Each structure stands twice: as C-alpha cells, then as structure tokens.
Simulated scan of single mutants.
Amino acid sequence: MGKASVKARAHTWYIIDMEKGVFRFNRRLCPRCGSVMAYHREPVPRWHCGKCGYTIFEGQAPRQRATGRGR
C-alpha cells in the first residue's frame, strides 16, 4: 500500500503560479473585521464571516446606504 497524494492544507488557501512566481490568497477577507470569510453555495451563494456575521451575497450589486439628505 502506497501513500495517497494529499495536498497540504495551505495549498487550498492559495492560488500559486510557478511560472510567474506569484501566489495570491484564494479566499476573501472580511471588510469589517479582517478575518477569512467562508463561501456557501446553498441555499443562496454568499460569502460569510463567522467572526462578525458580515455577509456578501453574490449576483447582487453592493447596496449604498441612504443618507436621508436631499431627494
């Protein structure tokens, strides 16, 4: 029995381009608290921060807050 080829967990967090020598983080960082956000597909595709509860829904434009000044 040979060992199965298993990627290190850190390889799932980054996209690595060996030709260009560049790597970037695969996940989003929370704009509110700075921790890593989780991606959920069901029931609605979204990014969610488990630390502060901030959620970004996919397929929707970011909403601007109404200031209530002038109409």
Rank of each mutant, 00 (worst) to 15 (best):
Phe25Thr: 05
Cys49Leu: 00
Phe23Glu: 10
Phe25Lys: 07
Lys7Met: 12
Met1Gln: 12
Leu29Pro: 08
Met37Thr: 04
Ser35Gly: 08
Cys52Ile: 01
Pro31Met: 01
His40Gln: 11
Ile15His: 07
Thr67Gln: 10
Cys52Leu: 00
Phe23Leu: 14
Gln64Leu: 10
Gly34Gln: 03
Met37Cys: 04
Glu19Gln: 12
Gly59His: 00
Gly53Leu: 03
Lys51Gln: 10
Tyr54Trp: 08
Arg46Gln: 06
Arg32Ala: 14
Arg65Gly: 12
Trp47Lys: 02
Tyr39Pro: 06
His40Tyr: 11
Gly59Asn: 00
Lys7His: 13
Arg9Phe: 15
Val36Thr: 05
Met18Thr: 11
Arg46Phe: 05
Ala38Val: 06
Gly21Gln: 06
Ala4Ile: 12
Trp47Tyr: 04
Gly21Trp: 03
Arg27Lys: 15
Ser5Arg: 14
Gly68His: 02
Val22Tyr: 06
Trp47Gln: 04
Cys49Arg: 00
Thr12Lys: 07
Tyr54Thr: 05
Glu19Arg: 11
Trp47Asp: 00
Asp17Gly: 02
Gly68Asn: 05
Ala4Gly: 13
Trp47His: 00
Lys3Trp: 11
His11Pro: 07
Val6Trp: 13
Glu58Trp: 04
His48Tyr: 08
Glu19Tyr: 14
Arg71Asn: 13
Gly2Asn: 15
Pro31His: 04
Arg65Asn: 13
Glu42Val: 14
Trp47Pro: 01
Cys30Trp: 01
Gly68Asp: 01
Cys33Asn: 01
Pro62Arg: 05
Val36Trp: 01
Arg24Pro: 14
Asn26Arg: 15
Gly59Phe: 00
Arg65Trp: 13
Arg27Gly: 11
Arg24Val: 14
Gln64Phe: 14
Lys7Ile: 09
Arg69Ile: 15
Glu42Phe: 13
Gln64Ser: 09
Gln60Thr: 12
Gly34His: 03
Tyr14His: 14
Arg46Asn: 04
Met1Asp: 13
Arg27Trp: 13
Glu19Met: 06
Ser5Ala: 15
Phe25Gln: 09
Thr67Asn: 10
Gly53Arg: 00
Thr55Lys: 02
Val36Arg: 04
Pro31Arg: 03
Met18Phe: 15
Gly2Pro: 14
Pro62Asp: 07
Ile15Trp: 09
Gln60Cys: 10
His11Gln: 12
Pro31Phe: 03
Cys52Tyr: 02
Arg69Val: 15
Gly21Asp: 01
Ile56Lys: 09
Pro31Ser: 01
Glu19Ile: 11
Pro45Ala: 04
Glu58Thr: 06
Gly53His: 01
Cys30Tyr: 02
Ile15Ala: 13
Cys30Thr: 01
Gln60Ile: 09
Ala66Asp: 11
Met37Glu: 00
Cys49Pro: 00
Met37Ser: 01
Gly21His: 04
Val36His: 05
Lys3Val: 11
His40Met: 08
Arg9Ser: 15
Asn26Ile: 11
Trp13Glu: 11
Thr55Val: 05
Val44Tyr: 02
Gly34Ala: 03
